[in-house]
């Protein structure tokens, strides 16, 4: 097997193991119903994490994801109150996400500032903007929300794929094509793998950096749209610290934080692992929810150590 698939294979193995453990412990766990629910409940995290995958593959980081989700939510809710159709406000917010991301990318490249700081500024800026829009929880009452919630595809067994899961899977498919079958995708891997070499090999670093954050912004905004429609409301504190869950999903999915190595598909499983952990603990009933965070932390830690080991032992990212 090609070495680059080892982290992905590990992620899938962990996911299957957790799923089987759940099946062994609880009746009815091993079903498409549980699977469908996990997909739907975590779809916005996974969508955001897909965008974050590109950013991390390019060697960067995006901390503005959670605030973007919150801002998109409150904006859509307020626009709904003003009579906008949710699809129209969604389109507007997606454009905003792209522009905001592109602006962050441009500042990062043009001013040569660490992405961490630039997107941290983005985090504060957007969260502040949420409270400028509204300080209350605002419902989205348009009929489209009911229609959106009613859409579902039946799976074998009792499970269903809800519309959120469908949007997530579609955006995953698009992301896979972008990552693996376009020049832009190759450039992202190249910049994350070795920025200076990539430049010498003719990659336009600025264009790639701006585009990758724009793509990240798009996916964050899309996550915000899905979250708003899923909860049918906008709340200025929504999505707080979600950027960290998204980054965790990317890392659990086998992408190296140092950039250049990883696969978008892995992020799906990384997000699902996070979802599985909370489902397992909720199924248990006797453990309190603190255990969700604790076991996620332990697993994340184990994965990072494993990556370190993989990098040094199989030359996943060897430089001479």
């Amino acid at each position: 097997m090609n070495r680059k698939y080892i982290p992905l294979a590990t992620t899938i193995a962990v996911f299957l193991a957790l799923f089987l453990i759940g099946g062994a412990m609880y009746r009815n766990f091993l079903s498409t119903l549980v699977l469908g629910n996990i997909l739907a409940d975590n779809s916005f995290i996974i969508i955001a994490a897909i965008g974050a995958t590109f950013v991390i593959l390019s060697g960067g980081i995006d901390l503005s994801i959670g605030s973007m989700i919150g801002f998109v939510g409150v904006s859509m809710a307020v626009l709904d109150r003003m009579g906008w159709h949710p699809l129209a406000s969604a389109a507007l917010m997606l454009c905003f996400g792209i522009l905001f991301g592109a602006a962050q990318g441009w500042i990062i490249d043009f001013c040569a500032i660490q992405p961490f700081i630039v997107t941290l500024a983005g985090l504060f800026l957007l969260r502040g903007a949420c409270f400028m829009v509204t300080v209350d929880s605002v419902p989205i009452r348009h009929d489209f929300v009911q229609f959106y919630a009613s859409l579902k595809v039946h799976l074998p067994g009792r499970g269903v794929l809800r519309s959120s899961a469908l949007v997530m899977l579609a955006s995953l498919a698009v992301a896979v094509v972008i990552a693996h079958f376009t020049r832009f995708g190759s450039n992202v891997y190249a910049v994350g793998g070795d920025r200076e070499s990539a430049r010498l090999m003719g990659v336009d670093i600025r264009r790639t950096t701006v585009s990758v954050y724009a793509l990240g912004g798009f996916y964050s905004a899309l996550a915000g749209v899905v979250y708003a429609l899923y909860t049918s409301s906008g709340y200025p504190l929504a999505g707080s610290t979600l950027e960290l869950s998204a980054i965790a999903a990317v890392v659990l999915g086998g992408t190296l934080l140092s950039g250049g190595v990883g696969m978008v598909v892995g992020t799906l499983f990384g997000g699902m692992i996070l979802g599985l952990i909370s489902t397992l603990i909720i199924f248990n009933g006797s453990l309190n929810s603190a255990w969700i965070l604790i076991s996620s932390g332990v697993l994340l830690f184990a994965f990072i150590v494993l990556h370190r080991f993989l990098v040094s032992s199989i030359g996943l990212r060897e430089t001479q």
Binding site: S186, Y189, A190, G192, G193, S197, M201, G202, V203
Partner: peptide, 13 residues
């Protein structure tokens, strides 16, 4: 770029 495949390295750009 060591993390990319030989093909990608030969054809990038």
């Amino acid at each position: 770029i060591p993390s990319m495949s030989v093909t990608q390295n030969l054809t990038l750009g």
